[in-house]
Amino acid sequence: MTPEVRAVLARHGAVLDESGFDPRADVARDAWRACAADLHATGARFFDITAIDRGEAVELVLVLVDTPSTQFTLRTSCPNESLRAESLAGVFPPAEWGEREVFDLFGVVFEGNPDMTRILQPDSSTIHPLRRSFELEERTW
């Protein structure tokens, strides 16, 4: 990670964990979009956005690549009571579809996404199938 990325993460109060394969930074949900925008200003590129269901909360995972091609992740946590986060579509345009996928499969609503609709399932669907609480219907034959 470049010093610029470290400085941005420190400025937004991110907790850095470099013990694993990729460096991971946990940031508060309020600083989610501002931190991503500052990382974008350092030259970091968007790789992926996805989520992990931790039971009590849904953890958003933003995978970025900084200028010398080091991959790192920025994470934040959305408690089950309020599954909302600020959209990063204004910072990284490709994040729009990734956020729609996270909404479709996990139910996290991204405020500010220009088209916050389902992307994989039909619009009439009411389920978020990658949540741990989701159970498959019993087979009828």
Binding site: Q121, P129, L136, R139
Partner: peptide, 9 residues
Amino acid sequence: FVDSYNVLP
């Protein structure tokens, strides 16, 4: 995919 949430049987 028979038990899938998104595929017809």
